[in-house]
């Protein structure tokens, strides 16, 4: 039953994802991609659970590596997206800037 339940969640989220993204203007494609990429770092939650479980030995090494790589993804992804989005300005707010 657990499998069916998880698959149910999976299906609904996929449809939700399609609905959310389908109308994004081309201007925002890069930030959207990098922002979505940061969300895929959610695997950090799994990595943290694994690293805290004190498996020891090789498993501990794998888990530690998972936490490191996932944190690179999460922190880097959100920061770089924020940096990009900070540059997008409307006409009036940008005139005079950078001259």
């Amino acid at each position: 039953m657990e499998i069916v339940y998880l698959t149910f969640i999976l299906m609904l989220s996929i449809f939700l994802g399609f609905e959310l993204i389908s109308k994004v203007p081309a201007t925002l494609h890069t930030p959207l991609m990098s922002g979505a990429n940061a969300i895929s770092g959610i695997t950090l939650v799994g990595a943290v659970l694994a690293a805290g479980a004190d498996h020891g030995g090789f498993a501990e090494f794998l888990a530690a590596l998972a936490v490191i790589t996932a944190s690179v993804n999460v922190v880097g992804g959100y920061m770089v997206t924020n940096r990009m989005l900070a540059m997008f300005k409307k006409k009036d707010s940008s005139s005079g800037a950078g001259r």
Binding site: L6, L16, S22, I39, S40, T43
Partner: peptide
């Protein structure tokens, strides 16, 4: 883990649309 499934599939479908 439900959250990984939800967040992962949101990103998955976003990538497919792009």
């Amino acid at each position: 883990n439900n959250l990984l499934i939800v967040a992962g599939s949101l990103v998955g479908s976003a990538g497919i649309i792009l």
